[in-house]
């Protein structure tokens, strides 16, 4: 019996190691191939793929910076409402004839300030991240509603140049008489991705964050300034959220007190999906990128194939569960 189990467990270990690293990626590719086969003419077109990158760019900005707090083992529920609040700040400042640059700067400062508030509550006061950011989620949402009077700001307030930029791109090539462009939003998201990747993977700061995530107490005893670094991670996430809000508002030429609220859950889901791809199960920003793309590809592909929207949501959840389950089973087996 024991021998039998030992015999059977050998291939399982190999499978496990393989699935642990590549399961999510393979699943992602299978999904891409599936949509490709269903909609051969449109899904794999350059234009559609670039569309997908534009569609996920705002989620990407939030998820990439969310990865930083999650490296430490914390998370931030307030990113969605912070994005909404930043959008409202930009809208209101433009409405009151402030310069665009000033408006964006103030919105980003608000994001940093919100991050400091989260960081102080969690790293210094010692409130659990779930509770602290749940509370600030409500505070930011209330601030967005009260600043705007609950109203949607739209129309001429937003300069055409800004809206055109957010919806435009750099011409790449001409296909079938249509100009294919790399969306500016995609580029912004790629810049954020590059910065976060550099910070996490190439700096002492990043290695310390992973050390804290591995063992907070040991890091503290080793002389790492755990509290300060934890606070900084929330500032990064707050900045990412407010940048996402600014970009979202520019793209839609609309500031609404709930515009960005939907970003939070998808951002956390993307990081979790990405975590399934790393050996130790810790968040890696390139993994988050795959998570973000997976969420974007599912929404885009399901819509093109014509799956009922409610079924779409069920399937998206099932796929996330499947991915995380496969990874945790394979990790346990090894």
């Amino acid at each position: 019996m024991l021998a039998d189990r030992a015999q059977r467990s050998r291939p399982a270990v190999n499978w496990g190691r393989f699935l642990r690293s590549f399961g999510t990626l393979i699943g992602f590719l299978l999904i891409v191939v599936f949509f490709w086969s269903q909609r051969p003419a449109t899904f794999m077109s350059v234009r559609n793929l670039l569309n997908i990158t534009q569609q996920v760019s705002i989620l990407g900005i939030v998820a990439f910076t969310m990865t930083v707090v999650m490296v430490v083992g914390d998370f931030d529920l307030s990113v969605g409402t912070m994005a909404s609040l930043s959008g409202i700040i930009v809208g209101l400042m433009l409405q009151n004839d402030h310069a665009l640059g000033t408006a964006i700067l103030v919105a980003l400062l608000a994001g940093a300030a919100g991050g400091i508030l989260n960081g102080v509550l969690i790293a210094y006061v010692g409130i659990l991240p779930f509770v602290a950011t749940l509370a600030t989620l409500t505070v930011f949402s209330g601030a967005a509603s009260s600043l705007s009077g609950g109203r949607t700001i739209f129309g001429q307030v937003f300069p055409d140049g800004l809206v055109d930029f957010a919806n435009g791109g750099i011409p790449l090539l001409t296909l079938n008489e249509q100009v294919v462009r790399i969306p500016h939003l995609t580029l912004i998201a790629l810049i954020v991705l590059a910065v976060v990747w550099f910070v996490l993977e190439q700096t002492v700061f990043g290695r310390r964050l992973y050390a804290i995530g591995g063992n907070m107490e040991a890091s503290r005893l080793a002389g790492v300034r755990v509290r300060f670094l934890r606070l900084l991670t929330f500032v990064i996430t707050g900045l990412g959220a407010s940048l996402a809000g600014v970009v979202l508002t520019s793209q839609l030429a609309t500031a609404n007190p709930t515009l960005g609220d939907g970003l939070m859950l998808n951002a956390i889901a993307a990081v979790f999906l990405g975590m399934t791809m790393s050996q130790e199960g810790e968040p890696r920003v390139l993994g988050t990128l795959v998570g973000v793309l997976l969420i974007g590809v599912l929404a885009n592909g399901f819509t093109q194939v014509g799956v009922d929207t409610y079924v779409q949501r069920i399937l998206t959840g099932v796929i996330i569960i499947a991915s995380v389950t496969l990874s945790s089973i394979s990790r346990r087996r090894s």
């Binding site: 909609r39 003419a41 449109t42 899904f43 077109s45 234009r47 559609n48 569309n51 534009q54 569609q55 705002i58 979202l248 793209q251 839609l252 609309t254 609404n256 709930t258 515009l259 960005g260 939907g262 929404a299 885009n300 819509t303 093109q304 014509g306 009922d308 929207t309 409610y310 949501r313």
Partner: peptide
């Protein structure tokens, strides 16, 4: 006709993305 109803459940930004998708779908 074939009708597909896409409800983004209150998410206005997602409406924009889904319009792009159905345009691509043709």
């Amino acid at each position: 006709w074939n009708v597909s109803v896409i409800d983004t459940a209150g998410d206005v930004p997602a409406v924009n993305a889904r319009i792009q998708d159905v345009v691509t779908q043709g």
